[in-house]
């Protein structure tokens, strides 16, 4: 159980920052009508997840996970989240590229990038 204010807020500030960033991205994803702004929201959301993973890999006083002269006895940060996020960043870039090119095609076809206007134009055809 959490006893004090500082234990909840100050020693876990990485989670608070990741959650706030994630909520900003989620809000942009839900509330914005412009499709490009939705993609920006998706990217902010992704960045929050990356920040969350990388911050819980941190060990106080640990070095980067590359063997130093001391070998396995030295203190390293957890390498596994770094690997997962390295691959997740690549997937994020791919998703962003495909989404942006889909938006370009939608704009060429219908002339709008606003979600509601797009639905109206689609229904009118």
């Amino acid at each position: 159980m959490i006893e004090s204010f500082s234990e909840l807020f100050l020693s876990r500030y990485n989670y608070w920052m990741a959650i706030i960033l994630m909520l900003i991205g989620l809000y942009a994803l839900i509330a914005k009508q412009n499709l490009v702004k939705k993609i920006i929201g998706l990217n902010i959301f992704q960045t929050a997840i990356f920040l969350f993973y990388i911050s819980f890999a941190e060990v106080r006083g640990g070095t980067a996970p590359i063997y130093t002269a001391e070998g396995i006895s030295a203190l390293y940060v957890n390498p596994l989240p770094h690997v997962l996020i390295l691959t997740a960043i690549v997937v994020g870039v791919s998703v962003t590229a495909v989404a942006l090119s889909l938006i370009v095609r939608i704009y060429e076809e219908y002339g709008v990038i606003d979600e509601d206007e797009l639905m109206q134009v689609v229904r009118k055809r």
Partner: peptide
Amino acid sequence: AVMAAMVSIIYDI
């Protein structure tokens, strides 16, 4: 592979 895919995407966009 990553360099080529990125440059291909940049060319197209």
